[in-house]
């Protein structure tokens, strides 16, 4: 490590007090493709799985074949809920970390809190077949999607998904 030159030291001082704007020299792989839709679908899937888990007919205690069928169906639904809860969090982390920039945060100061809520509700929805937690996850992901499309200058609309669980989703109005 060498010493900083005089100009850079002056720049550092100025930067400390008034903060220069940033010019990005991006060095990630240049795909440039970001879309919150997968995160939204994953959150909706979590809601759907909670509904299915809670509506699988309870087995008769004296019938082992019913217990087997019930256990099997619950296990599959829980597995899907687990995977989609994590997939939702993963997709949001990618967009939050790779796409959003400080300029976006200035325009949407609640962005970090929304992402934090998604992480929290995503974990809660994985831990329990709790519809309220799953809906909170979906609502926060919808807010995240609205902010994302706003940064692209694209209007959004809210509409019920045309399939179960028919909960409200945010769609880009292209």
């Amino acid at each position: 490590m060498g010493e900083k030159d005089v100009l850079t030291r002056i720049m550092d001082r100025i930067d400390e007090s008034m903060k220069f704007d940033t010019a990005y020299a991006h060095c990630d792989f240049p795909c440039g493709i970001y879309d919150p839709h997968l995160a939204q679908l994953s959150a909706l899937t979590v809601v759907r799985m909670v509904d299915l888990i809670n509506n699988i007919p309870k087995p008769t205690a004296s019938k082992p074949e019913e217990i087997m069928d019930y256990s099997h169906d619950v296990a599959r639904a829980v597995d899907i809920k687990e995977k989609h809860g994590e997939l939702c969090k993963h997709e949001v982390r990618i967009i939050w970390g790779d796409y959003f920039k400080p300029d976006h945060l200035k325009a949407h100061p609640d962005l970090h809190e929304i992402v934090w809520n998604i992480m929290k509700y995503g974990s809660k929805a994985r831990q329990e077949p709790d519809r309220e937690a799953a809906m909170k996850l979906l609502n926060e992901v919808n807010k995240f999607a609205e902010i994302f499309w706003q940064t692209k200058g694209i209007k959004t609309k809210r509409a019920k998904a045309p399939y179960e669980p028919k909960e409200e989703m945010v769609y880009p109005d292209l």
Binding site: D21, A23, Y24, A25
Partner: peptide
């Protein structure tokens, strides 16, 4: 105007933390 550079895609011309006048 002066900008602070974030990222290393302009190495060796400029690297993360340099200032672009």
């Amino acid at each position: 105007f002066v900008l602070k550079i974030s990222g290393n895609s302009m190495k060796p011309f400029a690297k993360d933390g340099d200032y672009a006048i």
